[in-house]
């Protein structure tokens, strides 16, 4: 079992970037510990800005820095970053065209029993609705590294959601298939296509194995790039399938499922079912308990697919 969280990998990539480029700047909102950025702050004090518990100011200040040539990474819990400072993300980052990377840490239901205040189950919908805002949910630590290596080099704003806990590896170090803004085909199948992002990729992959054992051939697509959604990759992978199933750690509206439906409804109409968190405060529990409860674990996904194919 992998013990390295995606956020820890982010810290490593940002330290490497900061050593090469003094314009790399990280801002936190009393969140350097949650973001695994303590070692960055210690190693690069002149390229680190503590903003205190003030997410609006965090994002505006990051935009001011970026407007002066900095590559700003504003790192704050996804729940607060995506809603408390939503307008700053819209106006100061996307609309003003500043190179601010908005990193939502402890995303989804990572904070578990801390409750709805700390869950971000609407961040994909919120951020995707902003013109010019890209939205990424990397799956494992290896893909996280590839994504951040790409993001430190580009000049436009983006929102990235990272979970809090280590997730099992999906890819193998040294051979990670990654192309910016292109979904990764994890496995091919003939009956069903599973499309997942973030922490849901692993259970989707495991569900495909369970389904295979039961005689159902399922392909899996890692759609880490929720916006811009890889339209061609989706349509290509969906071609010929009886069913498309989306899986996401997000409310049922405006997330991956909605965006996949928009593409398939317009270009290649077919049946899609969307597995997501409920339109309600999430039950108390660890991520694994919550996912199991709502059928977002491998067994639940496989069950939903079989039910839909009956």
């Amino acid at each position: 079992m992998n013990k390295i969280a995606n956020r820890a990998v982010m810290c490593e990539v940002l330290k490497e970037a900061a050593a090469r480029d003094r314009n790399v700047v990280v801002l936190c909102s009393d969140s350097r510990g949650s973001g695994s950025m303590t070692s960055y702050a210690e190693a690069f004090p002149s390229q680190f800005v503590e903003m205190g518990i003030a997410e609006q100011s965090l994002v505006s200040t990051a935009a001011g820095l970026a407007s002066c040539g900095k590559r700003a990474f504003a790192i704050s819990p996804a729940s607060f970053l995506s809603t408390r400072s939503y307008e700053q993300c819209k106006v100061d980052c996307a609309y003003s065209g500043t190179n601010v990377k908005l990193i939502g840490i402890s995303g989804g239901v990572s904070y578990g029993a801390l409750g709805m205040t700390h869950h971000s189950a609407q961040d994909i919908a919120a951020m995707s609705a902003i013109p010019g805002m890209r939205v990424y949910l990397p799956s494992d630590r290896h893909q996280t590294r590839k994504l951040f290596e790409a993001l430190v080099k580009d000049d436009q704003t983006a929102y990235v959601r990272l979970g809090r806990n280590p997730v099992e590896d999906i890819y193998e170090e040294g051979s990670v298939p990654f192309e910016m803004d292109r979904a990764t085909v994890l496995c091919e199948g003939t009956d069903v296509l599973l499309v997942a992002c973030g922490e849901m990729v692993k259970p989707a992959k495991d569900a495909a194995a369970l389904l295979a054992a039961g005689g159902v051939s399922a392909g899996v697509l890692d759609m880490y790039c929720v916006k811009p959604l890889d339209r061609e990759g989706l349509l290509s992978a969906a071609a010929g399938k009886k069913l498309v199933v989306t899986v996401e750690e997000h409310a049922p509206f405006g997330g991956l499922g909605s965006m996949v439906c928009q593409v398939t409804a317009g270009a290649d109409p077919r049946r899609v079912i969307c597995l997501a968190l409920p339109d309600a405060p999430v039950i108390t529990g660890t991520s694994a308990e919550v996912f199991r409860h709502y059928g977002l674990d491998a067994e639940g996904i496989a069950r939903a697919v079989k039910g839909a194919l009956l």
Partner: peptide, 25 residues
Amino acid sequence: IEMNSGSLGHGLSVGVGMALAARMD
């Protein structure tokens, strides 16, 4: 024009970022 504005209450923190950038550089 350096920054887009119109929604009130953003500019001072944007200015903080610009001033911090001057100090860093």
